[in-house]
Computed example of a mutant assay.
Amino acid sequence: MTALPDWMRPPREEGWLADDLDHLPEAPRHTELIDGVLILMMSPQRWWHGEIVDSLKSALKEVAPSGFRVGREMTVRLDERNRPEPDLVVTTAPFVPDVTWFAPEDVQLVVEVVSPESAHRDRAVKPRKYAEAGIPHYWCVEEENGAPVVHVFELEKECRQYAPAGIFREQLKRPVPFEIAIDLDALVG
């Protein structure tokens, strides 16, 4: 077994904090913080995943009204010990070139495209954390016979939990967070 590089050692006894992610230049590009633990993306990305993320980002940008921006692979600082990196974020934050994370109050929608290595986090861990932080909309995109299936959730504000709002195949039409109509089959076509 080889020794851990110095950058992988927490800077304090109580572990990692959200702001520490901005000071890890040697860490893999897609490093997240979940419950004070670094999550390193080490497995190769599947082509399907990248195509869905790119195509869905373009589709959302096309329909997003003024005041909304669509970002890819930017972390959301949920609290001191949680800074996950959704595949896509729809935000109302103004564009600031040097920003490395979004505040949850500026995020209207997070989208996770499920990969084998992230399936549990995307289906169980992250939705709970996004809901607790008050993010109004969550989409979990799964693969079904090569086609995307989008599981849509809306925040129930009183209990800070997501309620299912539909499962979409072929076409996704939603009135929130703005009018959305996306041909899901075209995302990989």
Rank of each mutant, 00 (worst) to 15 (best):
W47F: 00
C140W: 10
E143P: 00
E179Y: 04
L155V: 04
R83T: 09
F153H: 08
Q161A: 14
R9K: 03
D20F: 05
E158D: 10
A59L: 02
E80I: 13
E179M: 10
E73Y: 05
Q45F: 02
H23K: 15
K57N: 09
P44W: 00
E156H: 13
G189Y: 07
F178D: 04
A18Q: 12
P148H: 01
V188I: 12
A18E: 12
I182G: 07
Q171L: 02
A3S: 13
L184D: 12
E105W: 07
L4D: 09
V107Q: 00
H120N: 13
V114A: 02
A93N: 03
S66P: 06
V113R: 04
I182D: 06
P28W: 08
A163L: 15
A18G: 13
W7F: 07
E179V: 08
L4K: 08
D185T: 11
I182A: 09
L88A: 07
C140V: 13
R46Q: 03
G50L: 03
N145I: 05
S43V: 02
C140R: 13
V70C: 15
L60C: 09
R160Y: 12
I34V: 14
T91P: 05
G134M: 14
D79Y: 09
Q45R: 13
E85D: 10
W47L: 02
L4A: 08
D19Y: 14
H120G: 05
E112P: 09
R9A: 08
L187Q: 14
R83I: 10
L187I: 15
A124V: 12
F102C: 00
I52Y: 00
V110P: 01
L24I: 11
P136I: 11
G36I: 07
A18S: 15
E26P: 05
P127E: 03
R128C: 01
A131Q: 11
I182L: 09
W7N: 07
G166V: 06
A18K: 15
R121D: 08
G189K: 07
